[in-house]
Design a protein around this nucleic acid. Structure first.
Lengths: 338, 338
DNA sequence: AGAATTATCCAAAACGTTTTGGATAATTAT
DNA sequence: ATAATTATCCAAAACGTTTTGGATAATTCT
């Protein structure tokens, strides 16, 4: 029912070839013919059928991102800032963004990747929250589909993307806390299979070592990197007889949850206990008190990743295939003296 | 490079037709042949090419949602909960979700709708933040593309979707505030072209009238429905010589911004000034103090809209084309006695 | 004048799937 | 034995675009 190229051709008594070539700017079409075709196509409200174009050109003009969590992950500010960046850059590059959510290593996750990649639904994929050994990256390489990732996987050598120097960020944060007199510093992490946990925990440990502070296993608690679980983990830490004076969290969301736990205890954050996070999400500035955090520009990083992916899809040589960024320590009121 | 149906046919020395019919469960294929085809296809890792399938079947198995704001809108909890619902329901229905963001009535918005609809990129579209006169709904109807919306437009009779009884919600909220002794109640709204502003403002006014309270124009301030602009609008209200004792906001985000403005003034929210919002986003429970709000189950509503849309696309008769929900007043600590 | 080249148009193939309208052998009914 | 029916397979068309490999008339060169 929509106007097709055949309709335009019929109206002008030209061939489909001529109409196609006129619209696509080929040089073997007379200028007068080209102008006639263009104005008639516009008048008939012709828009190319994307399935047909995709089938013929072997190109979807779509990139995909599968959020590695339940659907509720869309409300996680880290993920939503990330999607904002992907969407803006995709639109700028005249590409569309397909999104879905599926818990890591779930059947749903595997099905989606297979359908989107092997079924030719997207031209490329962005991966984040990379695992130390990530089946997704192996699969994407094996399928020869353009992909970029935020963080590299240890088992995957073919890395194109952005990585954050979490180790040095955490070193800096721990050093700062130690300079404030803290010696009993806790860590709320994520799943141990995650690259960010590996790096951030390593930074936490290195920071303690640098300050000649022994690490105490009871001060390390795992979470599923949600506000709720940060809250639970913090309660566990605050229940200790010899509780920590500072809590370093794997990200801002868990830190915000930890803050709720401290508020609930009637503790004054920044005085009775210091709390810090990572990511620098917008909410972190608006918590009570504002959260000390290691900021990485999530939105900008996402745009950069999308930009790199579009270049890969277009076959344009990337100026740089691997970008390493330095998180910036933002000291706010949620951390104070021990 | 991917396996095609032709490859499977060649391997088995069958026709493409037989392979297609075997995979699709037609009854004119011998059972032994069918099983052979299925196992061979699996072994050869055959996945149907979606462009070809889409072209032939005239179906994309994709629904679209264009967030009516700048890309930063993805971090707005109302929109992100909405997308979470759309994504979960789409995945359940074996559909994919295409997303983008574009400011209302912008050239980008028009381009995206045209490309996605006339170009056949999606089978249906979900619209929210409906305007009193909404070009999007007219366009979608004219194009005969399945669509649903959260709220109806006044100028559009062909409504399928969900609407929220904002009028009665606001009536209840105003009545509650009046019962707490408030008589100088302000309203922070949105653009006057928005249906939700029209309804919520009407409820605000009706509530004041019901309490025999005259309306004072200086107590009504417009915003662009962001936390930042709620903050700006609240400052304007709090600067008044005879400032309001209660501020009712068009949504939770503007209320959260208003709360920041009050905190900044050293005002105790719930005592010195009462603040209320609308939506019931997850953050509202975690503000300091927790926000009084008119809750609508955004995630659930989004799933319902997606469910209705998928039924429309499938040609399945909808049990009910128009759903009306009642927001629920959640009284929390951000509102107190005047 | 005739050969070579160029400008400008077009038919058909291609992309990969599904559907249509068969062909043919086997089976059943008369 | 022959006609009618059924089971099971297949070639080609279709979807709508782009590309390939032309055809033909006009122009330029010798």
């Amino acid at each position: 029912m929509s106007t097709t190229i055949r309709d335009v051709a019929k109206r002008l008594k030209l061939s489909i070839t001529t109409v196609s070539r006129a619209l696509d700017g080929y040089d073997d079409v007379a200028e007068s013919t080209r102008e006639l075709v263009i104005s008639t196509a516009r008048e008939m409200r012709y828009v190319p059928n994307r399935a047909a174009r995709q089938l013929r050109r072997q190109r979807t003009e779509t990139i995909g991102y599968i959020l590695p969590a339940e659907g509720t992950g869309f409300t996680d500010l880290f993920f939503s800032e990330f999607i904002a960046g992907l969407s803006d850059e995709a639109t700028l590059g005249h590409y569309d963004l397909l999104v879905a959510a599926a818990p890591p290593d779930s059947k749903a996750e595997k099905e989606l990747y297979k359908r989107w990649v092997q079924g030719g639904k997207v031209d490329g994929i962005i991966v984040n929250r990379v695992r130390l050994s990530d089946w997704r990256l192996h699969f994407l390489s094996r399928q020869h589909v353009p992909h970029v990732s935020l963080e590299r996987s240890l088992s995957h050598l073919d890395f194109v993307g952005v990585e954050v120097d979490s180790l040095s960020g955490l070193l800096e944060l721990i050093a700062y806390l130690v300079s404030q007199g803290h010696r009993r510093i806790a860590y709320i992490g994520g799943g141990s299979d995650l690259k960010i946990d590996h790096d951030r925990f390593a930074g936490y440990q290195a920071g303690l070592e640098a300050a000649a502070i022994g690490s105490d296993p009871v001060l390390v608690v795992r979470s599923n990197i949600t506000s709720e679980d940060g809250y639970r983990a913090a309660r566990q830490l605050l229940d200790l007889a010899n509780r920590p004076t500072a809590i370093v969290c794997i990200n801002d969301l868990t830190a915000i949850g930890a803050m709720h736990a401290a508020h609930e205890r009637g503790l004054m954050i920044g005085r009775d206990v210091s709390i810090a996070g990572f990511d620098g999400i917008a909410d972190a500035a608006h918590t009570e008190p504002p959260l000390t955090t290691l900021e990485q520009p999530v939105y900008t990083v996402a745009r950069q990743l999308a930009h790199m992916l579009l270049a890969m899809i277009a076959g344009t040589p990337l100026e740089t295939k691997q970008v390493r960024i330095q998180p910036k320590l933002l000291i706010r009121s949620s951390t104070g003296r021990a």
